[in-house]
Design a protein around this nucleic acid. Structure first.
Length: 199
DNA sequence: GCGACAG
DNA sequence: ATCTTGTCGC
């Protein structure tokens, strides 16, 4: 299974992406993974619209795919799918740590997770995949498949793109209306849970 | 060889 | 991501 073959698979996933309008979610979730050597731990939380943790889950195991820029979904995607199966609640918005359509083949981690689960997903990343002047000169910079957003006081932007069932504009709205913090709280909670699991 | 490169 | 010291800001 070489990279060009995996790239073809990504193109297939990209074709399965569907846009959609933003709907105010009653359940918002976030997932993230941490590493410690060969160990990987992934966690996720489902929050009520009031911000209360309704469900939390975590899994741990050994990595089976290396980190390769542009193929991140093959490293974390399978773990996130296994993790999400542990939730009985079905979130109407899922924040993923990584990109969605902001990807060379429009198939970032959020697209993989969104297409496979059928959940509306939004990819959040702190770095662009392709190099470009990412200074916060403008508040909002439209990109091919997503946006670079700079809020007051930020030195670096946050990159927002849909993974499934949301148009780029809807993904931006989902972020703006549900994340007063730069990194959505569900992702931050998932991050700390995943880290704890490795200690 | 050096820097870049979602996490 | 992780390894790490100090440092700036809310």
């Amino acid at each position: 299974m070489n990279l060009s073959r995996l790239a073809e698979i990504q193109i297939k996933y990209a074709s399965l992406y569907r846009p959609g309008q933003y709907r105010r979610p009653k359940l918002i979730a976030g997932v993230d993974c941490s590493y410690r050597g060969e160990l990987i731990a992934c966690a996720g939380v489902v929050l009520s619209k009031e911000g209360k943790v309704l469900q939390a889950a975590q899994i741990k195991g050994r990595v089976f795919f290396p980190y390769i820029s542009g193929f991140f979904a093959f490293r974390e995607g399978p773990w996130l799918l296994a993790l999400l199966r542990r939730f009985s609640l079905r979130p109407e918005l899922l924040f993923v740590d990584g990109n969605g359509l902001l990807h060379p083949r429009k198939a970032g981690l959020a697209v993989f997770v969104g297409v496979r689960t059928g959940l509306p997903t939004v990819g959040i990343s702190k770095k662009p995949m392709e190099d470009f002047p990412w200074k916060c000169g403008k508040r909002l910079l439209p990109l091919d498949g997503g946006f670079a957003l700079c809020r007051k006081g930020w030195k670096r932007p946050v990159f927002i793109s849909p993974g499934n069932l949301l148009s780029p504009e809807a993904a931006l709205r989902a972020y703006e209306e549900n994340s007063p913090a730069k990194i959505p709280s569900p992702i931050k909670m998932a991050h700390s849970l995943a880290r704890r699991l490795l200690y």
